[in-house]
Structure formats: structure tokens, C-alpha cells
Design a protein around this nucleic acid. Sequence first.
DNA 1: GCACTCTTTGTAAGCGCTTACATTTCAGTG
DNA 2: CACTGAAATGTAAGCGCTTACAAAGAGTGC
Lengths: 333, 333
Amino acid sequence: MATIYEVSEAAGVSLATVSRVMNGNTKVSDRTRKKVETAMAELGYQPNAIAQSLASNRTNSVGLLVSELHGSYFGDLMSTVEQALKLYGKHVIITAGHVDEKREHDAIEFLKSRRCDALILHAEAVSDEYLTTLCKSDLPVVVINRKVDGLDDHCFVVDNEKGGYLAAQAAIQQGHKEIGYISGPKFKKDASDRLAGHKRALTEAGIEAKDDHIFEGDFHESSGQEGMHYLKQHFPDITALICANDEMASGAMTAAREAGLEIPQHLSIVGFDNVLFSRYLYPKLTTINNPIQSLGEMAARWVLKNVYDTKINHAIEHLFVPEVVERHSLSKR
Amino acid sequence: MATIYEVSEAAGVSLATVSRVMNGNTKVSDRTRKKVETAMAELGYQPNAIAQSLASNRTNSVGLLVSELHGSYFGDLMSTVEQALKLYGKHVIITAGHVDEKREHDAIEFLKSRRCDALILHAEAVSDEYLTTLCKSDLPVVVINRKVDGLDDHCFVVDNEKGGYLAAQAAIQQGHKEIGYISGPKFKKDASDRLAGHKRALTEAGIEAKDDHIFEGDFHESSGQEGMHYLKQHFPDITALICANDEMASGAMTAAREAGLEIPQHLSIVGFDNVLFSRYLYPKLTTINNPIQSLGEMAARWVLKNVYDTKINHAIEHLFVPEVVERHSLSKR
DNA sequence: GCACTCTTTGTAAGCGCTTACATTTCAGTG
DNA sequence: CACTGAAATGTAAGCGCTTACAAAGAGTGC
């Protein structure tokens, strides 16, 4: 693999000149530029990004921490972030934290050791203190889908409470009064926020928010099935079921159908997230759009603007409001 | 950020010694090791991976090229590869090629410029010649889901022809004789292989493989809908529909239902890939399992074994055979 | 106490670039 | 034609590590 030295030799110029034509920030005469470019082409020269990074203290790469590499939610997030950064020649280095404190921590350390120019974190397990310390360091950090007190400028979040509220409101507006809820793990902020919004909507509508109408799931399909079984058995008069994400809604739909309930005639179901497959379900799932792509794009823009001094016109927003996506799984009571 | 130099100073030893305790391959006395470790801890020292890579010519990272960062198929692939490599302390650098020759090429060049120790490529658009040249270079390369002549040892593939055959056979065994097919873009090798298998099964069963029963889609949901419309309109006597992937099967299901056809009573549908959501569909989709995870794991193992000299017991296999996943969308005619 | 070997530690030369600073070139001036 | 000063190019010192080689210690046996 040819080095810059061989190129300089072939072109009959110094190292520095070759470096200059590569980076294009200093003036180089057209004649020498030509010579260098020819030499590069002939040698099939390809700059060593590692060496460049070491010397310039700039890696042109942004670290992205997600919880999982699979699943629509993270797929959309990774995809948007990557596209936004690639437009400006920046690259993402993706790592997975698996919602485990140690693994998230290790993943972040890894990104730091790779000397990323900035970090975009979808960190769920690591502590607020850790994130705060991180943000205070000179490494630019952005947090996605999590609000940490005192770090507002670094956080990009969805108003989950509002989302939970909207889902319940949608059901109430259709005349439902007996409403079941399958929640995510309550220790997760987004899950508890959604639930809080749900309760607020019920209360405002003068419906008692009964705790035993709430089943705590784990955001996975199977717990949607379990939740459905539990609710059907104990509260057969429930007419609407709201799930804290689309996976669980899907599980609930399957379980409901197996129990002979037709959707939405016998039971209305509302999901949350609006992941890709929610539209493939039958009936198509009425759900709450979780603008994860907007979050990703905004985070990427923040980095471009604050780290790479890119001229970007769009304003940076930090709070995103979800909205109802009306499809066919919710109907009049 | 502390450097190795500061650590050596604090510990009262030389640079080399610090480097030695970090890498642990040379003998260092317990006493000095302790001193160094203490110094590291006190300074919060974190090795600079970039500098390590430059000096050692080893990045401990493997480049992974996928077509998209979203979607179950690639999600599963990325996830498996990452997990397998992480076990041995290796990391993946993921890039997306978007099934575009230039972008795939650029992505590969990027991975090369990052000096990945090896490349795992799910390359669809780049030419066979390019891949061949790449494999001949000293950079270890593995190709996933594509067979390139002369590169057998580097390729990990699914027997798509067999998969297509199995899908058709499954329908035939249920007594279907009028069978529609929604294919992927025929220029794609996997799409044409699946179709070839389909035709072989029909022929072997003494059923004429009619070209107009085949609709060429693009692997996306919407083309499944289009295909369904086309077939229903022109060949209303079709009793079974086989789709070259699950997305299109899902689209076809939607369109069929909208046309008043019940599945599988009026029309049986078989998919291909067995992506996560195929199980969420209603009725649960009968499909062909595409062992993409096995491919990914095997590719990762190949790298571990051949590049990092890891002791791995499992044999390396190159051809994976798909199988039928029986669910509820296919029934007797 | 000495020559010898085997460990442990130190020295210093890179790895392939960037960039501050020094030097050269050269068009434009009086 | 010598003299400027801006523009173009070169020189060399790092960036933070690894590692071959050299040097120094620590055991041995006599």
C-alpha cells in the first residue's frame, strides 16, 4: 500500500505538498497539483485514515451508541444518522449497549478510545451522573431519547408523556371507558412517562385509572400476549387496549384473536412507535408515531453544526411531539 | 487525556514497560505491573486506539458492508456478526452500500482507509471482477450471500435455488396447481435463483411453469400489492401465491384481503426470508427460513480463525440450506 | 567472587500523516 | 536590475503508540 512518501517521490515534491493537495486547504499551484494527482492515481494511493487521525487529532467519525443493532426502531435511527452525516463526509461508528450498564459503559469507552469527534448516545442503562460527567468533558456528546437534568442542550427527546396521553385520548374519544394498558418496564423512563400520560388522560376524562388494568410487560411481543391473557381473564369487559409499543401490541393482537376476539369489533388496540411493520399487521395498527428519525437527524445536525462547523440553516430543536397515526385497529365502542 | 508517557512518568518506568503491561504479551515483574496499573488508574488512562493501530498495524476492527442499516434482514446480520466478534474483543465498523455500485465501492474504500483487519461484505452492486481483485489483495475479505466464481473459499451463501424449490414444493404438496409467483428484481442473483428453483419444482411436478404467472417485483411491500392486483385480475383461478420475500408477501396479503380473499381459505401465500415480523402477520406467514444469521456467524468465525488466529472448533461451512417454516398462510387446496 | 545464562527493563526508531515555520520562487515595483 | 512581499514549496517536529535491540539485574554453579 503506497504511502504519502512514495507519492511525493513519484511526483517530485515534498511530503507536505502531497498532504496539501489531499486536504485542499492551502494553496498549491495547478501545475504541482496535477503532478501529485497523477502520481496518486498511478500508485493507487489511498490515504491512511488512521495516520491522518493521529496527526490531525480529527477522525471525521461520530460514535453512535444504540441498544440493539436489529429492530426497526434502531434501524431507523442508525439509518438516519448515517445518511445525515455522510452528506458531509463524516462517518458513524456504531456500537450496541444492550441496555446493560457495563456493556453501555464499555461501548462508550470504546468509542472514546477510537477518538470519535463526537458521540451520539441512545443510552438506557448508564447513570445520569455518568452522562453528566461525559458531557462536561471536551468530547462533544449528544443524548437521544433521554432527558438528563442540567443537560438540556445535549438531549433530544420525544414527549412520551404526551404520547401516552394521546393514545388514551384517542381511545376515549371513540367512547371507550374500560381501557387496559400494557406498559413497558416501569424502571425505564420512556415507559413510565407513557404510562403517566395515559393516566392523566383517563383522569381528565373522569375515568378512574385502575392500577390492576395495567400490566407491566417488557416491550417484547410475548409480553403483549401475556398481558392480553391477564387482562382478558380478569377484566373481560375491557373494550380497548393500549400498548406501550408496537411489538407488544402485535403480541396482544395475536392473543386476542386466539381468544376469539375480533379487532377492532370486540377489542380496539392502540400501539406506540409506529415501527415499519405496524402497517403490515392485520388490521393495520393504530399507533402513536415516535419520531425517532427526527431525533436522529437533529442529533446529527447538532454534531455537524457544533463539532464540524458546518453551515446548517435548520434550527436545532430538542423536544419532539408524537402524534396519533390513525389506522384500523381502533374503532367506536 | 493522559498519554502513555505520563503513565510511565507517574509509575517511574519506561514507555515500553507501560506498553508491555497493556498488551500483556511480554513478561513484566509483578511489582512493576502493579506500579503501572496504579498509575493508569490514578490518571484515568485510556489507550489511544488510533495510535495503537498506527504503530501495530492492527486495528482490531472488521469492516462490515451491508446494503441498508435498517430492516430485519440486515439487522439480524449486523447483530450476529457484532456479537460473534465482540466475544473476542474485535469490533465491527459498519457501512451501507445501498445497492449502488458507486456507493458500495466508496464504502469499501472507506473501510480500507480505516485499515480494517478484514472485510465482511454483503455487496450486491459491485462487479465480480472488483470482488475478485479485492480478495487477491492482502486484505482478508469474505463475501456474504453471493457466490463469485473462483472465490468459493471466501463466499458464504444460501442455496436460494433450493429455497425457491422448497417453497413451490410446499404449495404443490398441498395440492395447488395454479401457482402465482412474485419475484424479486431478476438482475439480482438471489432473486433469479429463487425463481429458478420455483420453476424446477413446478416442472418436476408436471406443472407448466407459465411466465405470465410471474410478476417481477422489487422486494418491497408495495410491489407485493401490485403483483397481487396483477395476478388476481389476469389469473383469478390461482390458488397459491409464492413471494420471493416476506415484505412482498405482506403486501400481497394486504391486497388480497382488500380484494375480499381470505387467507389461506381462498388463497395460500408463502414468503421467503422468515424475517422477524413474518410471525406477526395475520395469518402467520408460512415462509422459507433464510439463515442469514448463520451466514453472519460463519463469516465472523472465518475472520476470527484466519485473521486473528483464534482457536475455534467449529468447522467453517460455506453453503447454507434454507428450510420451510410452516405457519398458517398455506393450506390444502 | 566470577563468568554465565535467563529475565526484566530501557532506548530509540519507526508507523503515515499534519502543520508551524523556514525557505525559495517569482511577479511586480521604482 | 536590485528589491519587495506574497505565494508556493520544503523542512522537520510531532501525534501516541509498538517493538527490535541493547542494557542491566538476578540467579546459578563453580
